[in-house]
Amino acid sequence: MELTRVMHVEDDESIRMVAEMALADVAGFELLSCDGGHSALRQAEAFAPELILLDVMMPKMDGLQTLAELRKLPSLAATPVVFMTAKIQQAEKQQYLDAGAIAVVEKPFEPMELGDTLRELYQQAVQP
């Protein structure tokens, strides 16, 4: 299955803009870009993403909380989630994987390659 619809949740506007370019313009995904967990929760079901890219450190509702809330929505209970964060320790990374993420992508990222990375992670996740 080919990845087409991606939801991105990120509070940093500049990262949101560059990701918009990387994912919508360069990779050609249909993209929903949200500036925080609350706005993501409001729009997620209607958009029905095939993959969710979540920033870890956000004010109000962080990545882990957002993930927990998203999982309560029936249609998103099994949607693959990728966390994105600045450099972290292996233990912390394990914590995100344990929470149900399929992968953790590190910032800084290369804008021209982000789409391909997500495409590969998605392929691995949906393979039977």
């Binding site: 940093d12 450190m57 004010p59 964060t85 450099k87 910032k107 800084p108």
Partner: peptide, 27 residues
Amino acid sequence: IADSHQLSGSCGTFGQKSLGDLASGIE
């Protein structure tokens, strides 16, 4: 911590790797 964490990710993405490393050190 929150601000420097954010900068450590964004600086590098926008081609300012050494600023990103410095922000990471602050964090």
